[in-house]
């Protein structure tokens, strides 16, 4: 088993005094693909924002690479983690400029890396097209390329293929799988789609009402879940 890249204990997040996240314990292992499933409002996206250091927890700390993250997070550490969101927020610029953006932020523009990335996501012919004129699937591939080109230690995916056609879903899943296999990038995937979790993840966790109900390796999670709520969720007859 790989050493853990994140450790979380008694992590809470409140918005307007309402607890939206309350995770007792969670360890994310380096080089794994962890899927978090659960209904909307379960706190999955909130957890991703905390893992990306975009917001501070109300209580508890995120321990990343054995370092307790509180107060101001050093820029180098922040730059090891990135998120691809459900809606690809692209800049009003060319596909190429969008993909190169993260490198530009680091003052490390490398044309060959950008080219290679455009090839990988199948967008090389559209490199000079305005990014906001692309189709939804193409836009999401731009967002994925923009995240991968900076070679993050951790890639967070927040419903990356919701509302996409099967062709683009297949492409994106394959790129994610390849990134994890070949570069060892740790991936945390939030999804409504339990089939996607089953296809991609090494481990799967169920979240409900801000809590982590069960986390297990994928086969156990789906075939012999220990919590009845997990069983109901994977059968597809959970009421929420």
């Amino acid at each position: 088993m790989n050493p853990s890249i994140y450790r979380i204990a008694n992590l809470k997040k409140e918005y307007a005094r309402r607890i939206v996240l309350d995770v007792e314990q969670l360890e994310i292992q380096g080089r794994e693909i962890l899927a978090l499933v659960g209904p909307s409002g379960a706190g999955k996206s909130t957890l991703l924002r905390l893992l990306n250091f975009l917001e501070a927890p109300t209580q508890g700390n995120v321990i990343y690479q054995s370092l307790t993250m509180n107060g101001k997070i050093p820029l180098q550490i922040r730059r090891e983690v990135t998120t691809v969101f459900q809606r690809p927020a692209l800049l009003h610029a060319s596909v190429r400029s969008n993909v190169a953006y993260g490198l530009d932020l680091r003052g490390a523009r490398a044309e060959d890396r950008v080219n290679e990335m455009l090839e990988r996501v199948g967008l090389a012919p559209l490199a000079h097209a305005p990014a906001h004129k692309l189709s939804g699937g193409e836009m999401q591939r731009v967002a994925l390329a923009r995240a991968l080109v900076i070679e993050p230690q951790v890639l967070l995916l927040d419903e990356p293929t919701a509302n996409l056609d099967p062709y683009n879903v297949g492409l994106i899943e394959e790129i994610v799988r390849q990134q994890n296999r070949e570069r060892g990038t740790t991936i945390v995937l939030v999804t409504h789609n339990i089939f996607q979790a089953r296809r991609l993840a090494h481990r799967v966790g169920l979240m409900l009402g801000g809590r982590l109900i069960e986390i297990n390796d994928t086969a156990t999670f789906f075939d012999s879940p220990s919590d009845p709520r997990t069983a109901a969720f994977v059968r597809g007859d959970m009421v929420y």
Partner: peptide, 26 residues
């Protein structure tokens, strides 16, 4: 401008100044 873009830019490793610049150019 799209508030989601600011979060996205920060998530890609932008400093405060880089985030402001990104919003201004949008």
């Amino acid at each position: 401008t799209d508030p989601a873009l600011r979060v996205q830019v920060r998530s890609l490793g932008a400093t405060r100044a880089q985030e402001t610049w990104a919003v201004l150019s949008e």
